[in-house]
Design a protein around this nucleic acid. Structure first.
Lengths: 356, 356
DNA sequence: GTACCTGGCACAATCGATTGCGCTCCTTCG
DNA sequence: CGAAGGAGCGCAATCGATTGTGCCAGGTAC
C-alpha cells in the first residue's frame, strides 16, 4: 500500500508506448481493480465456467493488450506442469535427412502451439544416452527420435522416425520398405537386370536392417537372386558420397560382373556413379543405378538419378501429430506399434535396359 | 492482431502420466535430514561460499544420484529468471543453408548448456513479426536471426547471420562479401572474361543487396564493366534450381553475348547450367559459371561447380558464441556492429578460358 | 419474511527451487 | 572465564500464475 500505484483508474492520456518491463498478472490485476484470480481466468478462456461478467472480460482483455501482458512461462509451467515443448533427437541437424523431417515436425508442432528443442548426437554414445535425460530435465512432454535408437524406457511418450523399433510404448513412423524395394527391384527386373549389386547402409543407420530385409523378401517374390559377392556395405561415418565411392571401388576391384546397382541412398549412389565413371563404365549404358531418398541433387545431377522417394517431411508431420496425440491421450496401451508411410518411385535417367 | 490473444488452451488435459514420479528438492532434503537450502546450495556448486562441510556435500551428492534428483526447470527459472535457452529464427529449417548454420549454432550452444528453439517463418509476414514475441513469451534469453530481418528492438540480445543490418544493438555475422566477390571476379578476369552476366538474388534474400554492392565495387577496382543488359534477377520463392533456370532462359532470350555468369548461389548456378545446356551451349567451353555457397551437390555435379564457399557452420558457431557473450555481459554499447567471416574460393570445372 | 439460489468475484494455498539473513554451537584468545 | 569469531546450517520470503473453496449481494420462491 505504501508505493505509488502506477495509475489508479484515473483518467490519463494514452499511456506511453509500453516498453515496460513485462507486466505481471499482479500489476494487471491491480491496474484493473480485480483479483489475479479473475484476470487469470479470463486470460485462460475459462471465464465461462467461472461466471465472469462479459463486460469484465472485455475490460481485462483490453487492458492486457494495452499493458502488453505476457504470462510468465516459468510460473505457468510450474503450476500446470505443462511445458508445451517436445525434444527432437537427430544424428546431425545439418544433414538433409534430418532437416527435412524437422521441417515436417515443425509444421505440425507450431500449429499446436508447441515448441521443440533439437539436439544432435552424432552417433556418439555418451550423447545418445545423455540427451534423453537432459531433455527431460528441460521438462519436455515428449520426444521424437529421428534415425536414433532409444534404449531406456522414458516417462514421456516417444515417437521414432525410421528408428530401431524397440517396443515399450514406442511408436515408430516407418517407410513401407517392402513397397520401396518392390518399386526399385521390379523396375530393374523389367529392364532385364539379373545380376544386381547392392550397397548396404552403415551398421549404425537404423534403416539398414529393415531395408535389407525387405530387399530379400522382394527378391524372393520377384524371383531375383541375390549374389552374395555383389553385396557391399558402406563404411565410416563420413557424410557425402565418399563412402559410396569407396564401396563401388571395392566391388569393381573384386571383378564380378553386374549390370545394375541398388544403392542404400542417393549419396552413395552418386559416389558409386563417380567410381563407375572412373573405371570407364557408363551410366546407364553399362550399369544402371537406383538410389534411395530422392535428395534435391538427385534431380539435378547428370544423369538424373532414378530413386525411391521418401516423403520425409510427411514423416515428420506424422511423427509430430502422433506424439501430440500420445501426449494428449496418454500412452495407454499403444494401439499400434508402427505407422507406415508410402514411398514414391522416381524414374530418371540412371537406369536403362540391361546390357546384353 | 495486436496484444495477447485469448489463448483458449482447452481444458486441463490430463498431465502426462509419468510412471516414476521425480523426486523434488523437498523429498531429497527430508531424506537427508537437511534443509532444502543446504541441498540446493550443494547442488548448485555454491557450497563453498556457504561453508557446507565437505562430508555433507558428499552425502548430498550421493543421495541426489541415488534418488535420481533433477531440479525442476520451471521452479528454477522462476526464481533465477534464467532459461538457458535461445530462439533461432530461420526462413525454412529444411533448406541446406539454415541447416548448416544451425549445426554450428548447436555446436556452441550445447557446449554452454544452452538449448534452443527453432522457428521457421517462410517469409510470411505475420510469422516474421509474431515469432520474436512468441519466443520471448517462452523466456528465451536471446535470439539468432538467420537470413531474417528483425524490425523491432527486442529486450534481449539479437545476433543476425547474413541478415539485414539494422543497428540498435544488433550484432551481425556477415560474410566478407568484398573478398568473396574479388575471388570470383578476379578468377573470371584472369581467364579473360570481359562480358560477365550476373544473376542477382531474390529481393527478400538479405544477402542480395550487400553482395551486389560488393560486386560493383570489386568490378570497379578490377576494371571490369557491368553490362546492365546482362543482369537478371531471381524471382519467386521456389527453392531449388528452377528460378536460376528461368533467369538464364530470359537472359538467353534477350540475345546479348556473354562468356561467363556469376550466379547468386549454387542452386541458381545449376539452373543456369541446365538452361545453357538446353540451348546448346557447353559449360565451361562456351560459358563459364561461378556459383556461391558451395552446397554439397556443387562438388558432385557435372561439371563440378566452381564456387565461393561460405563457412556456414562457422558462421553459426560465431553467432552463438557472440550471443552467449552478449547474454553474459549484457548489451552494453555493442562494441562492433558486425563480424566478418572469410569465404574460400573453390575452383572446379565449370570455369575455363573465355571463348575468343 | 425467511430460506434458497445464483451470478460475480476474492482468498489463500499451492507448484519447487533460490536466497538474504540469522541462529546455533565450538574454538580460541585475552 | 567471557567474548569474539567462524564454521555449519536452517527459516521463511520470494518468483508469478493456477485453482479449490469461500463469501456476498441481489433476486426469486413460498
Amino acid at each position: 500500500m505504501k508505493g505509488t500505484s502506477p495509475k489508479p483508474m484515473g483518467k490519463r492520456a494514452a499511456p506511453p508506448p509500453s516498453s515496460r518491463r513485462s507486466v505481471g498478472l499482479k500489476e494487471l490485476a491491480a491496474h484493473l481493480g480485480l483479483s489475479q484470480t479473475t484476470v487469470s481466468r479470463v486470460m485462460n478462456g475459462s471465464a465461462g465456467e467461472f461466471r465472469i461478467a462479459a463486460v469484465t472480460q472485455q475490460r481485462v482483455l483490453k487492458a492486457a493488450g494495452l499493458l502488453n501482458y505476457e504470462p510468465n512461462s516459468f510460473a505457468r509451467g510450474l503450476r500446470s506442469k505443462r511445458s508445451y515443448t517436445v525434444g527432437v533427437m537427430v544424428p546431425e541437424i545439418s544433414e538433409g535427412y534430418s532437416a527435412l523431417v524437422l521441417g515436417g515436425v515443425e509444421d505440425t508442432l507450431l500449429q499446436a502451439e508447441f515448441f521443440y528443442f533439437v539436439v544432435s548426437h552424432r552417433h556418439r554414445r555418451e550423447l545418445l544416452e545423455g540427451y534423453p535425460r537432459l531433455l527431460l530435465s528441460r521438462s519436455v512432454e515428449g520426444i521424437i527420435a529421428v534415425d536414433t535408437p532409444i534404449r531406456e524406457a522414458l516417462p514421456v511418450p516417444v515417437v521414432s522416425v525410421s528408428g530401431h523399433r524397440h517396443g515399450r510404448g514406442l511408436l515408430a513412423i516407418e517407410l513401407d520398405h517392402l513397397t520401396a524395394a518392390d518399386f526399385a527391384l521390379s523396375h530393374l527386373r523389367d529392364l532385364g537386370h539379373r545380376r544386381i549389386a547392392f550397397i548396404r547402409g552403415q551398421s549404425f543407420s537404423s534403416d539398414t536392417r529393415p531395408r535389407w530385409e525387405a530387399i530379400r523378401r522382394v527378391c524372393s517374390t520377384l524371383g531375383l537372386r541375390i549374389h552374395p559377392e555383389l553385396v557391399v556395405q558402406l563404411e565410416g561415418t563420413e557424410p557425402g558420397s565418399r563412402p559410396g565411392c569407396d564401396a563401388m571401388q571395392k566391388l569393381l576391384a573384386a571383378g564380378h560382373r553386374f549390370t545394375a546397382v541398388f544403392a542404400f541412398n542417393d549419396a552413395s549412389a552418386m559416389g558409386a556413379i563417380a567410381a563407375l565413371h572412373e573405371n570407364g563404365l557408363h551410366v546407364p549404358r553399362d550399369v544402371s543405378v537406383v538410389g534411395f531418398d530422392d535428395i534435391p541433387s538427385a534431380a539435378t545431377m547428370h544423369p538424373g538419378l532414378t530413386t525411391v522417394h521418401q516423403p520425409l517431411r510427411e514423416m515428420g508431420q506424422t511423427a509430430a501429430a502422433s506424439l501430440l496425440r500420445l501426449i494428449r491421450e496418454g500412452v495407454g496401451r499403444t494401439p499400434q506399434p508402427s505407422i507406415l508411410v508410402a514411398p514414391r518411385f522416381v524414374k530418371r535417367h540412371s537406369t536403362a535396359k540391361a546390357a546384353t
